[in-house]
Design a protein around this nucleic acid. Sequence first.
DNA 1: GTATTATATTCCTTGACATGTATATTCCTG
DNA 2: CAGGAATATACATGTCAAGGAATATAATAC
Lengths: 113, 113
Amino acid sequence: MESVFEVIAEPNRRAILSLLVSSERSVGEIERRLRMPQPAVSKHLRVLREAGFVESTVDAQRRLYRLNPEPLQELDAWLAQFRRFWSAHVDALERHLDRMDSSTPTRKKAKKQ
Amino acid sequence: MESVFEVIAEPNRRAILSLLVSSERSVGEIERRLRMPQPAVSKHLRVLREAGFVESTVDAQRRLYRLNPEPLQELDAWLAQFRRFWSAHVDALERHLDRMDSSTPTRKKAKKQ
DNA sequence: GTATTATATTCCTTGACATGTATATTCCTG
DNA sequence: CAGGAATATACATGTCAAGGAATATAATAC
């Protein structure tokens, strides 16, 4: 598994992460909410835990899992290199559309094509 | 392949994307810069193109590939749900560290190199 | 035309991983 | 203590994607 990117490539793991944004959950809760078999949940949680996406604490027979943000921040950092590019790109597109057609209400007025 | 997340799970593809941030490139340039075999480059470019990460134009026998930001913005949108969480988390951590030790150089001065 | 450069595609092999089923472990309750 | 709930692990299996090697396609140069 290894990389942050591979870990989040799996849709069920992304679903688990999204579920944990709101609050920590036990394995059983995840199982019921996401309607996936318990071994699948445990396996995905293992991957997430080993990659640092989640942490767990013991509560009797339960394990409560909660989000840990660091790997997600790492992902965010990788994305950062593209942000400059895409804002430039959006600007260029807007200018282009403004020139083609005046109906885009981005700022103030616009002219006829 | 299908999903944005699977596409960027592959390290060579991420390298290609990073390379294209600065400017568009031909297949041969990518091949040389990243030192990967030409068929590998072409295959990864195909995946990237079909997922909308890159576009190409023909220049004689060359194809020039350039970045297209939309899929990356999609990724950014997915990440957004976690930002609130992690800023809260960082704040809590900072408060905690502040209480333990005052040497965190977040703003102005710093002590120890 | 032929040769050459640039890129794409095909075929094959291999390895990784997701899933299901079954079972193990751990803790709690009576 | 036995029984059951909650979670983890083991094993077998199928799928799929990455990589290498060879070849095909396309444009150019001579």
